[in-house]
Design a protein around this nucleic acid. Structure first.
Lengths: 385, 385
DNA sequence: CACTCTTGGAGAAACGTATCTCCGAAGGCT
DNA sequence: AGCCTTCGGAGATACGTTTCTCCAAGAGTG
């Protein structure tokens, strides 16, 4: 209990320990009611500026900090957003899309903070008691698997859920994803134009949206142009087996003359494998991989990468979510207001609204057969050796 | 209000909207008091197993989820831990130590979840209202600058604070750091043994503990062995200027024959710079950099790296913090119990307890002048070209 | 039989805030 | 003078738990 309780005559003088100042202490010290303090501090109610500033001053002097827990209980808003990532293995983050995830999470954090929310990192595999113990205003889910029970429960209990990655059968408030099909087709066309006759794919064994859509797009393209598919799969969460798969792909009798790798480490792995087999890049092998890392700008040769623009995704996802939480449409292009709160939606209204975002292909030497100039050009005089 | 309120006769039949089941609804449905429900669900009190399981069953059937906000308000525990990282620039995370930070944050998240806590990412530069709006049981601070006002306020308000990186003048509950001095001295000795005559340093301009201690160790070593210091500094948060600084270092008239780079991208930057100047690694230039990335295992040549073992740091930091929060010593080696809660400490009791953790040097070809075998050895028959 | 102890559980007081409702007083208008 | 309106603010309640205190009934004990 706060010190001012003595003034209200409710508490005898027992155990008068010094605690944090509460709103009652401020009210007592300022000679006003708690209502007035609350209104003054939150800019509500009708108060003359003089009272407002006086209360604020007293609050400042007492070092008053409103209790977040009490506020949350009263208002039903915690200002907290969950960030969930599907886990392969025991780690809270996935290894495979790590740079992507890091960038995306960073952008999401920024966007959330900019609107007054904070992000809580919560792996989908967390113990249920952890999820239950946190008051969440909404949740961002990265690449939910089909029929994710966690997402379903969140959605059912009225918590808005926005997913990064088009959801399978999960009911979500909204989703955002890259246009993976367009991206893959673009890369395959790009490689074809560079002279590729047989394009291989290095892909994953998991069933997440990204892997699935990308692989399907590849297979569809193969069927369309009449190329026999040449691909190897491996568990994307295991970095070691990526190198093995890269090796396997280049060891095949029907070795491709161009490869697209779906995961971040594929570039270096494929480059190393090519070196082992004496293949020159890009002369004997064209290379593209999906990565957000800029190390591929300085490899030998630099490798063409597909960027999923995770920053844009993260920002969009968070803004959609907060729009849903606050029941407004801040102009992100998707009308979310009608859909919130989700428990008021009738089942089967149709799929939730989604946004497809473009990717960006950063073309470097590894995918251009006739490089106009070599990359080993000294920028200036190096002095003597 | 919950549906059971009608039974208690306090609420007329107005606005009987279906809401989440509360503890009262469970009590009513199970025919017991809310005390009994609370005790049954939390494993407290003295109840026969039969009552306990019956209550649990009813709660399950009603889909009862305790309100985290109410629990937090009542118990004063939110189960939330802040994770703060000093920001250079506008981003919530720092670029420079990015891989380190990512690994550390991941380990910290795991450790926290394992003990029932969740992590909230909160940049030190966040708007104050965000900090104030979240009930935090404690905070992890990564590399706090001297006199960080945020840390001071947290500590003063009774929130335990554990820092990664030895704090300057901030009062913290405890801290954990690598033994940067030992690490740098070890690297310098290693390079000397490999034949280096003049060792250069690529370091940062910022004043964080890591940069400062490492640079000081380098300068001290130079003074001891009588070598003229050869180093270049650059703003570590700017990835572009790192390449320029690497170039600058190798362009000096007193060019070093070995370089240690303090930051993650330095390895590739130095390698690229060496190529531009026609320097062979390791023959003409020995290279070591501090990095958590395993791309340096596959560069040409592979580069020796210093790992700060961020996973160990993250785990330790979180465990120390939770020990402090719960007022126990779980055997992490530092007796924290006497120090908690911090507001009961008298000022000037002495520095807070800290733990120094060892680093690990991963020796690869770039720092060994006589490599026993070349790294370009085909592991198996590549088939025909 | 009078008593203590244990078992099983109910009642009610907080936790600290936001906000709905209401009220007195002062001023403006007819 | 009576009435309406606005201003400035107080009171009380609810948010949904946890937990402290207390009580009734049965069991054991001398």
């Amino acid at each position: 209990m706060t010190a001012a309780a003595n003034q209200s005559g409710r508490r005898p003088t027992t155990s008068r320990r010094l605690e944090r100042a509460g709103i009652r202490d401020v009210a007592a010290a300022a000679g006003v009611s708690i209502t007035t303090v609350s209104d003054a501090l939150n800019g509500k109610g009708r108060l003359p500026d003089e009272t407002r500033s006086r209360v604020r001053e007293v609050a400042e002097r007492l070092g008053y900090r409103p209790s977040a827990a009490a506020r949350t209980l009263r208002t039903g808003r915690s200002g907290l957003i969950g960030l969930t990532v599907t886990t392969y293995g025991e780690e809270p983050f996935t290894f495979t899309e790590f740079a992507y995830f890091a960038e995306m999470a960073r952008a999401a954090t920024s966007a959330a903070l900019g609107r007054g929310y904070a992000l809580v990192v919560l792996p989908a595999s967390s113990r249920h008691d952890v999820w239950g113990n946190i008051a969440l205003d909404g949740t961002v889910v990265i690449d939910p698997p089909d029929q994710d029970p966690l997402v379903s429960e969140l959605y059912r209990s009225g918590v808005p859920v926005v997913s990064d990655g088009k959801p399978g059968n999960c009911p979500v408030t909204a989703w955002v994803d890259n246009d993976h099909e367009a991206a893959v087709l673009g890369i395959l066309d790009h490689l074809s134009e560079a002279g590729a006759r047989r394009i291989g794919l290095l892909t994953g064994t998991s069933t997440d949206t990204y892997t699935r859509l990308s692989t399907e797009a590849y297979l569809g393209w193969c069927a369309k142009v009449g190329q026999e598919p040449v691909y190897e799969t491996y568990p994307a969460h295991d970095p070691a087996s990526g190198a093995v798969a890269a090796d396997r792909l280049l060891a095949r009798p029907d070795r491709p003359d161009a490869v697209y790798g779906l995961f971040d480490p594929n570039g270096t792995d494929l480059l190393a494998a090519a070196r082992r087999y004496g293949l020159r890049v890009p002369d004997d092998l064209l290379l593209v991989c999906c990565s957000e890392s800029d190390v591929y700008a300085t490899t030998e040769p630099p490798i063409t990468t597909l960027s999923l623009k995770p920053r844009r995704i993260g920002t969009t996802v968070v803004n959609l979510l907060i729009d849903a939480i606050e029941g407004v449409d801040s102009g992100t292009g998707v009308d979310i207001a009608r859909l919130f709160p989700p428990r008021f939606r009738t089942a089967g209204t149709g799929p939730p609204p989604g946004t497809l975002m473009p990717t960006e292909l950063i073309v470097r030497a590894s995918s251009q057969r006739r490089s106009p100039r070599t990359t080993v050009s000294p920028p200036r005089s190096p002095g003597e050796i």
